[in-house]
Write a protein that binds this DNA or RNA. Structure first.
Lengths: 342, 342
DNA sequence: TCAACTTATTTACGCGCGTAAAGTTTTTAT
DNA sequence: ATAAAAACTTTACGCGCGTAAATAAGTTGA
């Protein structure tokens, strides 16, 4: 390893015995040069570990290899997980992913999109805040940069959307709960994004389809501290005797985890057993749901497929140029995960 | 807003009536130009919203305004939180923070440091994986780039370390538990970093200081899925009757959350009440600990102070050049957070 | 008011690489 | 074997900005 002072491509080209333009071509696409040439470059590469100056590269390429990943709230392990998944896929494809979190703040979301613009990214994977998002700002951004939305949809914005079929999620959970006990009431907070709305409406629809009267319980609270909202709301609902069923279907798992904490505090045993007074279920299969007390019955999002398809859609977009057809929405179905809570 | 086609600093300088070098000076430090000049530039800035090309800027500056933030495992909300905190402080100071997660993988950690190097960052805030880290690689990186370690220390590596006084943490928890009930046994997994070791040793020390015989229970398991390890280990320990005390002090909160799940599954009621058979406590005050069943008694890390001091240390380093004195280790004390579990 | 500073302008070069054009060599196909 | 195609080399320019040096203009204070 003669890792001497190779300062630029010029010098590296010299030591590898290949001309600089060809070396440049190699770094843009190794398969674009003759195998013999490629071998010589890679041989030199092992001796001298040189890497092109990323700033000079990005300055001169009209489109960089950067990919922006924006999530609404990184302290939610769901987004951390899916971001990890997406990151790795991007890296494998030779891109340079950069992760951003809006931390639940719409002003910050706009700021991020602004900075992102100056990164001249080849594409962006954006999970918007949802209701709080500055629609106009997001829309304008999507006009400038090839963007795939995921998790939370904004109608008509971005070149594609990949997410879950929330209506189906709730249909699954409602049917399971109705089949195995009392029809559930629905526990929610003011919706942060369209998914929450779809879940509530899906619940109403599914209940009616099963011949039951829907009962929606909405508790106050805002922001992304869902557990806290579920906990406080849970205490309130329990204390005021507002539960209309012994089965509580929560809009999402984080809310459910807060609700479980409230049940525990009030001495309400949750589960399917005879000594239990309440059944509780959620949606998402959040990473922590299996460690709830009791472990949470839920509908699992397909992390793998969502991230896989999102990245695929973006790559398709990047390669094929824009306007490669109409905006495509891909929704994945969830799977019932039966645990002890319902 | 005449947001026409300002393509570079040349053009922006022209429309603002100031020479390009002076404009350049302004962007490097607005206060370095005469107030009148500054006003004219900022006036033009509002009309034409121009931003210097970040790649060209970074190529020519010997040191960029980039700051790398590296955490071992972003799916842990503790790190997500502290990263958020650090991020914002950096942005406020006019830097450009970029967040990376090693996802529990030491190869990836090295890869990240490698990519980071080519970002020519002004500095890096690194929470290393710990035991799994490639010490040589990290050490070499720290030689090249001003780096402050946080959370997990590597002796002698980096210009400074900021973290928690884990010995004090355990001293606090042990004393509290001894004072209020049976002396605790210590529940741990194979240590991923020095913190875990310090906690175990601190436990032994504190127990002996209080005149009790320490009892360490180590369960098998590796990786960063602590809850899973705590859960499985918990079941095992309970089923085999290995608990030597009715009070269990867990090495950290995530392990404790898994342990609580195991207790719940085995029908062991946890808490301080008369009908409880077990007390459980942890360390860290993890974001989810308050929503455990029961809410977890723990020792709280001071997120704010850790991130504040880490950033301070890094800025000090960046301004003062390297070798501004010896390596400084800053440890913050924890605070007892009494909840229902112990 | 005039010297002594301070700040801005002009001019010019360099950073490291993408990329185009023209010429040369190697490979492929007939 | 030979023409055509493909890949490479040489040469040269441009990207947008940092930065240095020499010069000019503005500011300050007694």
């Amino acid at each position: 390893m003669d890792d001497s002072k190779i300062r630029n491509m010029e010098q590296f080209a010299r030591v590898s015995g290949i001309s600089r333009p060809t070396v440049s071509k190699y770094f843009n696409d190794p398969s674009s040069v003759r195998p013999k040439t490629r071998a010589r470059i890679e041989e030199a590469l092992e001796q001298y570990d040189y890497r092109p100056n990323i700033f000079a590269v990005n300055q001169n390429r009209r489109l960089t290899k950067n990919i922006g990943i924006v999530v609404p709230y990184l302290a939610d392990p769901f987004f951390a997980e899916i971001a990890r998944n997406i990151e790795q896929r991007c890296m494998q494809a030779g891109f340079w992913p950069t992760l951003f979190s809006a931390h639940g703040d719409s002003a910050l979301e706009v700021e991020i999109l602004d900075s992102l613009r100056s990164l001249k990214p080849a594409g962006v994977l954006l999970a918007p805040l949802g209701r709080a998002s500055d629609r106009a700002a997001v829309e304008k951004f999507c006009d400038d940069v090839p963007t795939v939305l995921f998790d939370s949809n904004i109608e008509g914005v971005g070149e594609a959307f990949v997410g879950s079929d929330n209506t189906q999620f709730v249909k699954l959970s409602v049917e399971y709960l109705c089949r195995t006990g009392q029809p559930p009431c629905f526990f929610e907070m003011p919706p942060v994004n369209p998914n929450a709305n779809k879940r509530r409406n899906g619940y109403i629809q599914a209940m009616e389809a099963n011949g039951f009267a829907p009962q929606v319980i909405r508790v106050a609270g805002e922001g992304w501290g869902f557990e806290e909202v579920g906990y406080r709301g849970g205490l309130d609902v329990i204390d005021r005797g507002l539960l209309t069923s012994d089965t509580v279907l929560c809009s999402n798992d984080r809310l459910a985890i807060g609700f479980l904490a409230a049940c525990y505090e009030r001495g309400l045993r949750v589960g399917r057993d005879a000594d239990c007074v309440l059944r509780v279920a959620g949606h998402d299969d959040h990473p922590f749901s299996r460690f709830g007390c009791p472990p949470l019955t839920t509908i699992a999002q397909d992390y793998e497929k969502i991230s896989e398809r999102s990245v695929e859609a973006l790559f398709h977009l990047i390669e094929g140029g824009r306007s490669a057809g109409p905006r495509i929405e891909t929704l994945f179905e969830g799977k019932l995960v039966m645990r002890a809570s319902a």
